[in-house]
Simulated scan of single mutants.
Amino acid sequence: MWTLPELPVQRELRRIAIITSGGDAPGMNAAVRAITRTAGSRGIETLGADRGYSGLVHEPLRPLSMSSVGSILQRGGTILKTDRCEAFMDPAVRLQTADALRAQGVDALIVIGGDGSLTGAHHFFADTGLPVLGLPGTIDNDIVGTDDSIGFDTAVNTALEAIDRIRDTAHSHDRLFLVEVMGRSSGFIALSVGIAGGAEAILLPDEAVNAETLLARMAQTRTREKASSLVVVAEGTDPTYTTRLAADLGAQGRPARACILGHIQRGGSPSGHDRVLASVLGASAVDHLQAGYSDIMLGIREGAIARTALERIGHERKKLPEAWLALASTLAS
């Protein structure tokens, strides 16, 4: 259970706007629902912008009500849609957007998204002074200041289900499979899935592992007379890496198949964990705005709500836990 702080009301709110931005993540809808219903229970109106910052800039806001956010808790993706908006990078556009929000009676903005979206939220506040609060919504779990992000648990479980099925085939045919999971330059999904899926090796984004290095790393696995093997690969920045590695392994006499899981990890119904996480953070976002907070992200650290300055998000990189890296190495040996 996550500890929720009791906060005194310091700021009067009439209307809150919400956007979901960047890549979609399972659980975003649960956060939208929690914000809307928590705010509504306190007499605060909630408006939603369609397509992230693009909608905030170019389209009218639409009202969200207690009933309009019903039956969305279990849905993947985001009912508010999402987009990436280059126009919002212009300070003049941010100023115009803030003026338009104030003209509609909007007192604060909540941004649910990844590091780029939350960095944009910081710049919006810095330029305009309109209160802004961020929630970490990304399957990558790569945002500093929080142990967990909305959508991460679902993505791990989706990838793990696929890996369990692939392992059946690997065992049946005595084959090596390279399974690429999402995460951009972050290895959190790969590390979690690799440990939970019993991978013989986990290749992280920072590693430049070639076929010879991987075969050497797996040599101990072969001494245990294990003909089939499964390697989890973090997608990194090179979209051809996994398929090229599979081809190189074949040239080294170790035939391998590449499986790219891709965007199936983003979709689907959110796990119970992500629904609760998003609900807790969404409700707490309203608490913090009423308490006068702004320019922060709410996350979870050591079982409690944690506040992180939005300015940190774009400047610091969340590191993989050393203990987990050591565990993965031990269990694969």
Rank of each mutant, 00 (worst) to 15 (best):
A234K: 13
S271V: 11
L261T: 02
L277F: 08
Q265M: 08
V231F: 01
P255H: 15
V231Y: 00
D238G: 09
V233R: 04
G272Q: 13
A291V: 01
D274F: 07
G268H: 08
T243K: 06
G250A: 14
T243S: 08
A227G: 06
I264S: 14
D248C: 09
P270I: 14
G282S: 05
C259T: 15
P270S: 10
R254S: 11
R257A: 12
A258E: 00
Y293N: 15
R266F: 10
P255I: 14
A247C: 05
D248Y: 03
D238Q: 10
A291D: 06
Y293R: 15
L289F: 04
Q252N: 11
D238T: 08
R257H: 13
P239L: 05
G250I: 06
G268R: 15
I260P: 06
R244D: 02
S269P: 09
A251M: 12
D248P: 07
V280Y: 00
V276H: 07
L281I: 12
C259A: 15
D248I: 03
H263K: 12
A285C: 12
G272H: 13
A251D: 13
A258K: 00
T240G: 06
D274A: 07
A285F: 03
Q252S: 13
S284N: 14
A227M: 12
R275N: 00
G253N: 08
P255D: 09
T242I: 08
Y293M: 14
A285L: 12
V233G: 01
S279G: 15
Q252D: 08
G272T: 14
L230H: 00
G250L: 04
T237G: 13
G282K: 11
Q290Y: 02
A258L: 04
Q252M: 11
L277P: 00
